[in-house]
């Protein structure tokens, strides 16, 4: 084999090596691009699924709200009318019982109405976020389960109807968690709107979230509560911060920029 043949072989070999390296790099780049596309499609599908789930949930709540108002509320009102008719013909002792029952019934009708309003998202559109939150807090306060305080510095109409529904449902979930799991005595809510930015801060003085559950968010709060919160925040472009120590309560703040219309 002459020097020239040898050089030709080296040249061929080197060219082939470069070609192979270039080809493998191209495969890696194309794969990465395809992977990103796949991830985006998956994310979009996940968002669409979440959206559908939220819509179904809202529809279910709307139906429950209508049933509560139209059926249970009506029946309670009928019972109240009957009790009013009865009361004149009874003894003082029985009348006292009837009066007590009427008082309970009045409270029950009030609660059914406010629960029905809380579940229906069109009430939210009519009354506004702050009033809905206030009504929920008042209901909890009346029950004596928690001492509540509400600091409202929010002007309505900063955020759109969909963002309001999401934020309100998140608030309801946080309130529910405080009632169910936190063993708290006090629950503070601070709603603030400023320069297209809305902030909802809730704080309780309960047992806090244990460290291991905080790190494993899928199993913290009520089942998958934190995960729900995370997903809902992502869907309306909000972000949230969580501060919790065992025995020192939990503070969660959701910050949201109003949609530009």
């Amino acid at each position: 084999m002459t020097i020239n043949d040898y050089e030709l072989f080296i040249l061929l070999g080197t060219s082939l090596s470069f070609l192979l390296i270039a080809f493998i790099i191209l495969v890696v780049v194309l794969y990465r691009r395809s992977q990103l596309k796949f991830e985006m499609e998956k994310q979009a599908l996940h968002q669409a699924l979440l959206q559908t789930e939220v819509e179904i949930r809202e529809q279910t709540l709307q139906n429950i709200s209508r049933d509560l108002h139209d059926n249970f509320g009506q029946i309670a009102s009928l019972i109240k009318i009957n009790l009013n008719l009865l009361s004149d013909q009874l003894s003082d002792k029985d009348q006292k019982h009837i009066a007590e029952s009427k008082e309970h019934l009045k409270r029950l009708i009030g609660d059914i109405r406010s629960l029905s309003s809380a579940l229906a998202h069109d009430t939210l559109a009519k009354q506004g976020l702050a009033k809905m939150i206030e009504a929920d807090l008042q209901r909890v306060s009346r029950s004596g389960a928690l001492k509540v305080s509400f600091n409202n510095q929010y002007q309505e109409s900063l955020i759109d109807a969909q963002q309001s529904v999401f934020l309100y449902r998140m608030f309801q979930e946080l309130l529910n968690n405080a009632l169910k799991h936190a063993q708290a005595a006090n629950f503070k809510v601070h709603l603030k709107g400023e320069d297209q930015m809305l902030s909802l801060k809730v704080k309780d003085d309960g047992i806090g979230i244990p460290k291991d559950k905080l790190h494993n968010q899928k199993h913290s709060l009520s089942g998958n509560g934190l995960l729900n919160l995370q997903e809902r925040c992502a869907m309306i472009g909000a972000d949230y911060s969580l501060n919790s120590k065992e025995g020192e309560g939990t503070e969660i703040e959701i910050r949201l920029t109003a949609n530009q219309t």
Partner: peptide
């Protein structure tokens, strides 16, 4: 096939990639 059906896993963590690359380099040489 790898490019058409990507997974969440890195390409370098996939056995098929190593098998295909081994064959490509060896049999081209």
């Amino acid at each position: 096939q790898l490019i058409q059906k990507p997974s969440e896993q890195s390409l370098f963590r996939q056995s098929t990639f190593w098998f295909a690359t081994a064959n490509l380099v060896f049999y081209a040489g």
